[in-house]
Design a protein around this nucleic acid. Structure first.
Lengths: 360, 360
DNA sequence: CTGAAAGCGCTTACAG
DNA sequence: CTGAAAGCGCTTACAG
């Protein structure tokens, strides 16, 4: 069934059918009703490709999740608790705005080709990229496509430094620095002085921000950053687990608290601690980041920094749609607050009885 | 940049450019290289809509997650641990086959319109529907579209009863009945006689199968099904939690083991039990279903029935692509085994000391 | 208010 | 082996 068929049945021209479909004002109510009835009767739906080819929007946005450092261990994207809620929210919000979502995941640099193609082949009106690695060249390439694009979690200064047309671009971030600062100060207020960190991937904006806040906050409070307490976790639980085990088995003095750059790694840390009979929070405090679903359901319930993922996703979808519609788009950035959710994985520092006795 | 531009630059016609792009044999190596070079130089990508309009495939499959009973409590789809891994796997597998995935979620009957449109507007080559509710009418409507379609988790007999052309259809199920049977027999072997169940949504195939296996297995072992021990959970954790609390607070004798129709609900049950000081597995055994990620990370680690989600997703993607390609498609069904993963949430039944004393 | 016609950017018989 | 032309199903000036 094509518009031509509808036209014939309704006794009008294709032009008029098109006008009705696109809700143009210049068609009398009577004609409109007549055409609409035929359309209804035959469950007619205009071919989306023909429409797009003739200049209409595709009503589809692309959602690309970049998870490159996961490649090696064959972890799948939604297994990484960080992406799932973003994807969830973006799909949901887009759908509620009448927009389809085209999803593609990027595990390796080569997969970026498909992302570019989605734009170049005009499959989508615009796109959202979440989890971008630091590789400015790839981002530059995407931006130079000059299609509506929203980057979630990207270093604004890095983009600003580039000489590119950014008017079709928007960046949505969370205040990871402030959230981390709140977490570290919470530990300090609890009395901790030896605070370790499990780093995220330093090739991501989030990873760098969280680490910077950790070390700045310690510094501001006159606390030394102990190199031994900096564990490279790469946001990966296996990696974090191994690093924590290494630290615990080192025989050297331990920190009394650990800030983990994400929950996945924090949970691994708690597992490693449990296996070695070190109880959380009594003997070691642990704070995570992201506040994934799991956080509230493990034992002890994990204190974590919550990201306003839904709000961020909403901003991303709204912005990309606005960029698609606007005739005069303009570069913009958003930064949403993150906040500490206190649960049961932190306490005042453990006081070693043996030492007490010695001191006494 | 259009194929015409490439043609001019390469000194050939659009036809030849098209032949190169589509890898047709009837073009000399020399010409092919010449054209390819120009294409490369200009990062040319053929407009996907024009191609689709001219009869090519869209290289996009639709993935529709139906989660209608979740509407009321505004739960989002990926929050339901059941869908996430399917979506994950389908996206991953499709992407690795060079296919994009168009996602749309269905929370209310009205959302089905968008699913239908995706087919009618020819946005996709074929589709996969996961989590279908029992409503045969909706399924009938989808099937009658005569587009390549794979249903995950659907009652085959219900479809067979309908007089429809099913040659473009495939159904991918898991052996929930057998998996549940294994779980219940495991509990019986442990010595349990009073076994309760938290039901899933009886409007889903899985929900019905799991319940049927539960009651059949008890019957086969000469055990009575106690109506009080049948808790309607609808696959929703809040619902399950409330039902378990109601049972625990009833003052009546309790079962010694509970089989939950999914893990989400099993975990809620464990939470409810913990809050009332009933320890798992010592005083109550609990088995879940689905083996979601959380299962192995809560305390106690949850014994559960694992679904081969990756294999199911793979079958679904492969089948839908095959249906898209085949000139003579034919109806097929798949049924993948589910198996019990023993962990720490089950034990021999709790023996009440008081009663022992009385007996002694 | 409305139809005929051109155009969107491809692919594919068809003819040579 | 290769080009001219028709066609895919829409939308949109344009003319009336």
């Amino acid at each position: 069934m094509r518009s031509e068929d509808i036209a014939k049945l309704a006794g009008v021209s294709r032009s008029t059918v098109s006008r009705v479909i696109n809700n143009y004002p210049n068609v009398p109510e009577e004609t409109r009703i007549k055409v609409l009835k035929v359309i209804e009767q035959h469950q007619y739906e205009p071919n989306s490709f023909a429409r797009a080819l003739a200049g209409k929007k595709t009503d589809t946005i692309g959602l690309f999740a970049i998870s490159m450092n996961e490649k090696e261990n064959a972890t799948r994207i939604y297994q990484n608790s960080y992406f799932a809620p973003f994807i969830d929210a973006v799909v949901d919000i887009s759908n509620s705005r009448g927009c389809y979502v085209l999803i593609h995941t990027v595990y390796a640099p080569g997969d970026f080709l498909k992302v570019k193609q989605a734009f170049l082949q005009k499959r989508i009106d615009g796109g959202i990229i979440v989890g971008t690695q630091k590789d400015i060249d790839i981002v530059k390439e995407m931006v130079s496509l000059e299609a509506p694009l929203v980057l979630i979690d990207y270093d604004i200064s890095e983009i600003m430094a580039e000489h590119l047309d950014k008017n079709h671009l928007a960046i949505v971030n969370s205040k990871d620095y402030e959230g981390t600062t709140e977490a570290i100060e919470y530990l300090i207020a609890l009395g901790h002085r030896d605070i370790g960190i499990i780093q995220g991937s330093m090739s991501t904006y989030s990873g760098r921000e969280r680490f910077a806040a950790y070390s700045d906050t310690l510094g501001r409070h006159g606390l030394a950053v102990n190199e031994r307490f900096i564990l490279p976790g790469e946001f990966l639980k296996e990696r974090a687990y191994a690093e924590v085990v290494k630290l615990l088995d080192s025989g050297e003095p331990l920190p009394t608290a650990i800030f983990s750059s994400n929950d996945d790694m924090a949970i691994s840390a708690i597992e490693a601690l449990a296996e070695r009979g070190i109880s959380v929070p009594e003997q070691m405090s642990v704070i995570g980041f992201d506040d994934v679903q799991l956080a509230a359901r493990i034992h002890p319930k994990l204190t974590s920094v919550r990201l306003p993922i839904f709000e961020m996703s909403k901003a991303a979808v709204d912005k990309v749609m606005e960029l698609c519609d606007s005739r005069q788009p303009t570069f913009s950035t958003f930064s949403f607050p993150a906040r500490l959710i206190e649960r049961d994985s932190c306490a005042r520092p453990f006081v070693d009885r043996t030492q007490d006795d010695e001191l006494a």
